[in-house]
Design a protein around this nucleic acid. Structure first.
Lengths: 338, 338
DNA sequence: TTATTTGCTTTAATCGTTTAAAGCGTTAGA
DNA sequence: TCTAACGCTTTAAACGATTAAAGCAAATAA
């Protein structure tokens, strides 16, 4: 009933705790423990079902073998995907993950990172939200290893793993252009965050390079606090105008889902009346009457890279890595074909 | 750069660590610390940005304020939903959650629970898989508080939080009957797990009570290892038979999604050719050409109840709770109306 | 014989907290 | 004057592991 500790094994066998520790940590050879004792100790550990107290161990060796993960919102597909990938890679490297979600709230971000630090995580993987630069600088100052993922601040010199958002948006628009579209709208979130601004930039540059008209009313920004309410007022005027766009490009999976619902409600046919292209993917796209063409972030690779980078940092302190990944492309049937 | 510890504050102020500990733990009054010192200590803690080492604290007080959560598969909608709910309630009660996914694998279940125990979690919330009775008994024996969620073993006397699966299935079938359906098929997973067998039982009892025909070939069990491959051979013969069912009831959200894809591929119209009713919900249902009628598990309430029960157990040791929740019902358009 | 090495084991400090128990100067009561 | 109480503070032993360093026989070398 009571927990078995090192001392119990030592007493059971009749040796000191040091010997037990050596044997159970695989240092039997190195520390020249007699075969006889080593054997007895191993047997006793099994017999008593000894589970080492990691808390005590962590305190002593000053390593918890734990990674703190802070995501922006566990509801995002990105978050679950990246969490899975990070968990998997962490397990491979023998790390445990503690995670939390900030719901895009700056104070929660600060609080969560502080909690994780006080729990002595060996390092952090962070999806920082708007206005979290200060806390990032503070972490940097404190010397704890961390890597940003998905989002970063170009003005702060940190390790990060991110997508080439500019190119992904640029390529997506180019795809629509190649399919013959001339009036392309882009719906994005209204935000200061660099990674989403890069999508704007990619969209605009692609239009320019292809010598297409770029109208301010075609580049739409919604706040995103309550998408299901915000998408209608954004979409309706767009579709009611005389020369309405012939393609809509959406910056996130959630934007796309809400837009599709709205298009359904308005009786607009995809891709007959308008082509739809999504930046991110969603499980729901498959059940839409025409599978939605979309970009895909290499979540597995990004998660793996983040963990590997972090573990290197933890062991090393030295390296500096800024990794950029390219988005994939999943053709569906939601875009008019040439 | 180096971490600030209690001793640093003590030295900075010129008192012993005991005083610092008392003050920072809000025992200043109780331990009659002079106001002057209390003030100085608080200030120093802020000035030096002291973050207590939870690992050391945990070791000393023998409490980590951490809950271990083991889910069956983080890909399930149930898992993400319940994880969110548990996280939220845990945070409210000042607990941290460490979680892991077993991918329905018994050995991983054993390993994960052992890892969590050795990390000294104060208690466990578990979604046990098939054949995990032995480990459950073992945990029970070891005295660590735990509560099962979603699934449980009627033959083992444990705390649990679960859905009334029998009634939910019974009611769903009754709904179809009320809509005039006479040939109702049920597709479930092939499993020994009690909660899914209860759904079978609910289906069969409802048919009997409504004096409807119950054919063995209408109660289908698929293994579920690779649904996208298994659903076609299950569905095709069903739909090709002369007197095919007029309604299909599916036991999980993933079964429903695969079935819908398959129905699309076969050109079967919902609800024109066949009604579709899902036990669980999915975000994807909204994008299907007709929103899918489905049951809904009260994940928030269940998660909250699980955490509350567990925390009571942790503080108390005594209570025994078997909580059963009723499923909700979300009408869509995928069932023929009367 | 004495010194050194070998082979194995124990001792005890340490990680950063918490917390009984003891310490100690001052004041109050007998 | 002596004792007791009060108000405040420090001491030091835990929690359960790790790990230098020291200890100690027996074997070997000088």
């Amino acid at each position: 009933m009571k927990k078995v500790v090192l001392k119990d094994i030592a007493q059971h066998v009749g040796v000191s705790t040091a010997l037990v520790s050596y044997v159970l940590n695989g240092q039997a050879e190195e520390k020249q423990v007699s075969k006889e004792n080593a054997e007895k100790i191993k047997l006793a550990a099994i017999e008593l079902n000894y589970q080492p107290n990691q808390v005590a161990k962590s305190l002593r060796i000053r390593k918890t073998h734990t990674i703190g993960l802070v995501v922006a919102d566990i509801n995002y597909r990105f978050s679950t995907g990246i969490t899975r990938a990070i968990e998997a890679e962490a397990k491979r490297l023998n790390f445990t993950v503690i995670f939390g979600s900030t719901n895009e709230n700056r104070d929660k971000f600060t609080e969560l990172t502080n909690v994780l630090v006080s729990r002595q995580v060996d390092g952090l993987i962070l999806v920082p939200g708007e206005d979290s630069q200060e806390q990032i600088l503070h972490l940097q100052n404190s010397g704890i290893p961390f890597v940003l993922i998905d989002r970063y601040f170009p003005e702060i010199d940190t390790n990060y793993v991110a997508l080439d958002n500019y190119k992904a948006a640029y390529d997506a628009v180019s795809y629509l252009v190649a399919a013959g579209h001339k009036r392309i709208s882009f719906i994005n979130l209204k935000t200061d965050m660099f990674h989403l601004q890069e999508r704007d930039r990619g969209y605009l540059d692609a239009l320019k390079d292809h010598h297409l008209e770029s109208r301010p009313e075609w580049l739409i920004h919604v706040k995103g606090d309550d998408l299901s309410k915000e998408i209608e007022p954004a979409l309706k005027p767009l579709l009611n105008s005389a020369d309405k766009p012939d393609a809509i490009f959406l910056a996130t999976d959630r934007l796309t889902i809400e837009a599709l619902k709205q298009l359904n409600a308005l009786g607009v046919k995809v891709p007959g009346d308008v082509s739809v292209l999504s930046f991110d993917e969603s499980d729901a796209f498959d059940l839409f009457y025409c599978p939605v063409t979309h970009g895909r972030q290499p979540l597995e690779e990004m998660g793996e890279a983040a963990v590997k980078t972090l573990v290197n940092l933890i062991n090393n302190q030295k390296i500096k890595k800024k990794l950029t990944f390219q988005a994939g492309f999943v053709p569906g049937k939601s875009c008019r074909e040439t």
